[in-house]
Design a protein around this nucleic acid. Structure first.
Lengths: 171, 171
DNA sequence: CCTTTTTCATTTGTTTACCAATTATTTGTG
DNA sequence: CACAAATAATTGGTAAACAAATGAAAAAGG
């Protein structure tokens, strides 16, 4: 059963990749005082100026409700700022404050890049080997048709996968 | 810059793998009425009889505090049972109840296996290709020395990117 | 034997994450 | 114009996940 061993190796290595990403985001967290998702959020906000909450959520592959919580904390720290739109008063646009901009300047690519930086060292040949392996993995998972979701650079968020049925749907 | 494209592919594919795992755990959840982590826990408990809480946590690569919460919910559903040890009254052993055993019987490999099942179809050669690609990835991430962390079959948990304190494996 | 340290589970507090429901506003249709 | 439908953000509730602190019990040391 050589295959069994290989499969176990693959799963272990997947876990390690996740953990490595986590580790690095923890370092970033220590350096900046912000959590992974918070860093990720301000990175997106820094890139795409004042952004609507729902657009931010889409960018981060997260539920709007989740983003609201993250924004609450960032806002209470004076890092981001919410502005209600004049044109459409349902819309809230989120932007960085001055100290938010400072923070982004200080923490350069802490947010992103971590995994990317590591990969850039490799040769095209090595990268191809990795890419092809993952390609296989994706194929057998039948996941090709799915649009990529979270697991962005800063952290992996993942976790929640809850489906949670039942709820009040009952009484 | 062929490399840039390869790197983007790799990251996209990683996201897809994560999402595929999530999708499947959602299905399992819908089928069994239990969440991913809960399924994972009872699977481990079913395998290794009455198990100590701390051992279960180590098996799941989770913090004991997290496992306590999961066990609380499983216990309140009458699926698992906590028994305080007579020998060492600090220890709590967790086992399945009768309905817990039924549930495990009904949901065969729903919990685990999903990813594994997919992999088993492949030839040893293909598996080797995947394994070597991931191996590279892990190496550049400098993660080999770290013990693998979650991202097991049922779900990916990931998220909290907290540090994971290494357990006692050290001192 | 008694004090100190260690170990085990749990509790407490924070953050993330989702779904479902709510509120406010806009758009569309009669 | 009035009323319904759709959209945007938020609130509420549950489940994870972790770190840190607590309480209880066992092990070590003097």
């Amino acid at each position: 059963m050589q295959k069994k061993v290989l499969i176990a190796d693959i799963i272990d290595n997947l876990r390690r990749v996740f953990q490595a990403v986590n580790e690095q985001s923890k370092k970033a967290e220590f350096a900046t005082g912000l959590t992974g998702p918070q860093l990720w959020a301000i990175k997106v906000i820094a890139e795409s100026g004042p952004i609507r909450v729902s657009d931010l959520a889409e960018r981060m592959y997260l539920h709007p409700a989740t983003v609201v919580g993250i924004l609450d904390r960032l806002e209470s720290h004076g890092i981001v700022q919410r502005v209600r739109s004049k044109d459409d008063r349902r819309v809230v646009r989120v932007g960085l404050t001055d100290s938010g901009h400072e923070l982004v300047a200080k923490a350069p690519q802490v947010a992103q890049g971590l995994l990317v930086d590591g990969l850039e060292i490799l040769s095209a040949k090595e990268l191809e080997s990795i890419a092809s392996g993952l390609d296989h993995l994706v194929k057998i998972l039948g996941a090709q048709k799915l649009p990529p979701q979270l697991m962005l650079s800063p952290e992996v968020n993942m976790s929640r996968m809850k489906s949670r049925r039942i709820h009040k749907t009952q009484e």
